[in-house]
């Protein structure tokens, strides 16, 4: 039976990993090429030092290569890779931070993000905001960057994201909301600085 393929004729992730599990380096190289940019971005979201991010990238694909046979085809390969990256990042950082509760009050974050303050300059900047968003994202704490990357940039489902971060679904949603508020606050801060 032939391996399953995507619409463009390329092998699916599951097929590539199936071949990789049998030692097919070429198949794994295609898999790496397909996912390396997303994994590297996720790695950069988790650690401050570029060297650490690159190390996470390498550890992730090394683990994936060695454990390709463990991939269950029903899962998303992207979420599977992110899980590996996340575990590697946890080993690099303080293990206990993963479960740290973000108890910042939403009201406080909302005020920082501009609730109740009119800001025409923000709206004016909206269309040219991509660079500002990238900078704002970069300025956030690692946990915020990680969850925004997974949910809003990568579009990983809420359930998968919750599992990835070892959180319940409501806790993941709460963390995401706070991260978005911090991003909005950072954007507002950046917009104000640019208007000066």
């Amino acid at each position: 039976m032939s391996d399953p393929v995507l619409e463009d004729g390329a092998l699916t992730d599951a097929a590539l990993l199936g071949r990789a599990a049998n030692g097919d380096r070429q198949a794994f190289d295609v898999f790496v090429e397909r996912h390396q940019a997303r994994v590297f971005r996720f790695a950069r979201a988790q650690v401050a030092r570029p060297d650490d991010a690159e190390d996470l990238l390498q550890q992730t694909f090394l683990s994936a290569w060695q454990g390709a046979g463990a991939f269950r085809g029903i899962d998303s390969a992207r979420a599977w890779l992110f899980t590996i990256t996340r575990h590697a990042a946890s080993r690099l950082r303080d293990q206990h931070r993963r479960e740290a509760l973000d108890d910042t009050r939403v009201e406080e974050l909302g005020i920082q993000a501009g609730w109740g303050q009119s800001s025409p300059e923000f709206t004016a900047l909206r269309r040219e905001i991509q660079a500002e968003v990238a900078a704002a994202l970069e300025a956030l704490p690692a946990d915020d960057r990680a969850i925004l990357t997974v949910r809003d940039l990568e579009g990983v489902s809420g359930e998968e994201a919750a599992a990835l971060f070892g959180l319940s679904l409501p806790a993941m949603k709460s963390r995401l909301h706070r991260a978005r508020l911090r991003l909005a606050a950072e954007l507002r801060r950046g917009g104000r600085d640019a208007a000066r």
Binding site: S119, F122, I129, Q130, V133, L148, D152, R180
Partner: peptide, 12 residues
């Protein structure tokens, strides 16, 4: 504004 920030984030 908040929705615009999320939408802008998703442009990345």
């Amino acid at each position: 504004e908040f929705g615009a920030a999320i939408a802008a984030l998703r442009t990345l």
